[in-house]
Amino acid sequence: MAIKDFPIEEYVLPGNAACPGCPSTMGLRTVLKALGKKTILTIPACCTAVIQSWYPYTSFNVPTLNIAFEAAASAASGIAAALKKLGEEDINVVVWAGDGGTYDIGLQALSGAIERQTNFLYICYNNQIYSNTGIQRSGATPYAAWTTTTVKGKKEFRKDIGEIIIAHHVPYAATACVSYPEDLYNKVKKTMGIRGPKYIEILAPCPPGWRFSMDKTVEMGKLAVETGAWILYEYENGKLSFNGISKSIAEGKYKPKPVEDWLKLQGRFSHLFKPEKDIVRINAIKDHIRDTWEHYKKLASL
């Protein structure tokens, strides 16, 4: 779908509480344009709980249930079950959760909801931190990134949640990035025709969390994909395939940019470049990207 064909309707209303340059509202706008008004959102504790604005008003124009941090997927199971009994199964049941609520505290409920074949779309907008509480490390935070709880840089690599989801044998799982709205739109649209649990994870570069200027949200997402630090893929009917630039990288038609191009623009990695270049950790990042690619290429060849 080309941008000019996106529906004009806005379900994220202007005058909301998001930070300027917020990737969550950016992604959610596109997601809701694809889903349309017959959608029920459930949102655990995350930035989007605040972005909605304050009682007695909301900036969201689809029914939205806020729920506790670890509870979004199970609440969605309840919503889906009720809709089935009400004969309203044409309504999209959608979780919109951050990476903390997905990778960490919400993982058990997510696994349970997928295992019991809940007919829903779970979207994780991944800003790689607990941003709403003020930038703490999550299971999605990349190696070496500064957060307020990893002040010298995170010592561990991020969890590969995509593989955890795929291990549940879901009918559909995909990654996306706010910088590629057509790709995101198409992926969301595709889930609407599939019964059962669907998972989409959207890379959501967060200006205050990653320490970059608020006008560069789109650029930061693009660089993540162009350097290979974020892979765009789709897993469908047991097959994994790459999309967009990631497809070109996989096919050797696009030479990934050096990861330093992405790291350098983010304050959270500034300690890797000054006072002097931290070759060891930068190489570790490069190795991790290379290993991840090799692993995913293997998955794609299966």
Binding site: A71, G78, A81, G112
Partner: peptide, 17 residues
């Protein structure tokens, strides 16, 4: 469900629907 926490969360989702 896979836990009682999820049992109540699912009831909340269903009741809210």
């Amino acid at each position: 469900v896979e836990s009682e926490h999820s049992a109540m969360s699912a009831c909340i989702g269903a009741a809210a629907t």
